[in-house]
Computed example of a mutant assay.
Amino acid sequence: MPVDTGTSRWFLREPSPESGIRLFCLPYSGCGATMYRKWPRFLGDIEVCPVQFPGRENRFREEPYGTYEALADDLVEALLPHLDRPFALFGHCGSALPGYETAVRLAERGYPAPDRLFVSSQVAPHTGPQGRFLEMSDAELAEEVRTLIVQLGGAPRPDLVELSLDILRADVEANKRYHPAAPVRLVCPITALGWNQDVEVDHRLMASWSDCGETEFRVLDGAHYRFMDAPDELLDVFARDLGRPVNAY
């Protein structure tokens, strides 16, 4: 039986002691950690570690976070016991920004730094907030929730839509509140991922990530939700940018 480190609520499964490097994957707006269920657990020796935020799925009784800064404050402490080997952070759209804030907090507290921060389909922190979700009504957001639930392979039952809408609204409000005047430049490199069919965030709007640290830009084939299918092109980026053999999984 795995040892309870006191951080287990942040993970659907405890990170494995067999991994060579851990990729902590933060959930998309309105979603929980199960959104990564199509991803393999291991890419060679890279372990995919989906992170569970408060207020969703098995943590639905907890209050959702109010700001990305508050979320990062708690998340770095939850991650700390698992930073005993190389690691990286991944966030798509609304979760890219708390991913960045988490990297900032790790540096501020003198904790281990990520080998790399992967940000997908999101503008740099000091150039936002940006995106059509910010101006949507609850009815419009509910329709997006239904689409997302179907995309994840579920049935959009009214109770599930209502619960997910509450989470999505909280995420959208946190995004609205987040507008740092100037970015903190990270010590770790950044990979900024855009998608050539993305109508939510045009990849050409992501150039300012270079203000946040040494940044490599990559444009992948697909639309906004393509990442959830774990396309080989995305998995190859993780392996290549983390110095692992490509397609060794």
Rank of each mutant, 00 (worst) to 15 (best):
Val3Gln: 11
Glu18Ile: 11
Glu18Cys: 11
Ile21Met: 11
Leu23Ser: 07
Phe24Tyr: 05
Lys38His: 09
Phe53Trp: 09
Arg56Phe: 11
Gly66Ile: 03
Tyr68Pro: 00
Asp73Trp: 02
Leu75His: 00
Leu75Ile: 00
Glu77Pro: 06
Leu79His: 00
Leu80Val: 11
Arg85Trp: 00
Phe90Leu: 09
Ser95Thr: 04
Ala96His: 00
Pro98Ser: 06
Tyr100Pro: 04
Glu101Asp: 11
Arg105Glu: 09
Gly110Ala: 08
Tyr111Pro: 08
Tyr111Phe: 15
Ala113Asp: 12
Gln130Trp: 14
Ser137Ala: 04
Ala139Ile: 01
Glu144Lys: 08
Thr147Ala: 12
Leu152Lys: 03
Pro156Leu: 04
Val161Asn: 06
Leu163Tyr: 13
Asp166Arg: 15
Asp166Glu: 15
Arg169His: 09
Asp171Val: 09
Asp171His: 06
Val172Lys: 03
Asn175Tyr: 14
Asn175Trp: 13
Arg177Leu: 14
Pro183Arg: 14
Pro183Ser: 11
Arg185Glu: 12
Leu186Met: 11
Leu186Arg: 11
Asp198Gly: 05
Val201Trp: 02
Leu205Trp: 09
Asp211Cys: 08
Cys212Ala: 13
Gly213Val: 10
Gly213Ala: 09
Glu214Tyr: 14
Arg218Met: 13
Gly222Glu: 09
Gly222Phe: 08
Asp229Glu: 14
Pro231Ile: 02
Pro231His: 03
Glu233Asn: 13
Leu235Ser: 08
Leu235Trp: 02
Asp236Leu: 12
Arg244Asn: 03
